[in-house]
Design a protein around this nucleic acid. Structure first.
Lengths: 113, 113
DNA sequence: CTTATATATTCTTTTTAAGGAATATAGTGC
DNA sequence: GCACTATATTCCTTAAAAAGAATATATAAG
């Protein structure tokens, strides 16, 4: 029950949903997500932690930065199913389409000087 | 996007999830739900309103009382899919199994004097 | 019309979550 | 070792959600 409600709560925040939708297109480090969403860095880290605890994203260190990507869903069946549904859900949402376009033009080398 | 996060938020509360799981077995009036969950009546009404706004439940007046039942999911695709998933999800959760057993012994005539 | 009952709503208080500033940690390169 | 950068964490403030008490609405029965 706790696993289930944690997954639901994680996805009840618009910024966290946006992170999931961006990660469907490429894995991103914190500063890329920060730039895409225009949020302060600590905010992004906290959102990512909530998503990670819910089994929705995973991370991998790469030197100085940390790459976040969608989880494979092996932690909970709820995360797995929701990630599956979200693969098509919200694709037509104007907020999402605009964001995804933006993501492709982000270049880590320009952002993290 | 708002429809989606509203559905997620509605299901991020344990009591509301329990309501959904009970309604899978029979439609219930407010005082039955109140008895099953041991919650004050205004609390139950407020939870039901949140579920209703999220498109997860619907209500039907029957004289003095109001019967709540699972929605047909026509309001949003998110509600429809989540209700589908919840048909099997959490069936093994001890909190849920205990509750569902209890529900079958509830008798509206005894509760709403 | 009065009384009683089921439900909804309002208002206030308490709890919980989000936002922001500051600081801490951990790598990298010199 | 020191300086620099990316990320995480802590602490404090603010906003939002939940809990609770009281009241309002609506319907039924006498």
């Amino acid at each position: 029950m706790k696993d289930f409600t944690a997954a639901m709560k994680a996805l009840s925040d618009q910024n966290r949903v946006k992170i999931i939708k961006m990660l469907q297109h490429k894995s991103m480090c914190v500063c890329e997500i920060k730039a895409a969403l225009n949020l302060p860095q600590p905010s992004v880290s906290k959102h990512l932690k909530i998503l990670e605890k819910a089994g929705l994203v995973s991370s991998q260190k790469d030197g100085l930065w940390v790459n976040y990507h969608l989880s494979d869903g092996s932690r909970t069946p709820y995360a797995a199913t929701l990630l599956g549904n979200l693969r098509h859900w919200l694709d037509d949402d104007p907020e999402i389409t605009g964001l995804v376009e933006k993501v492709f033009f982000l270049n880590r080398k320009d952002l993290c000087k």
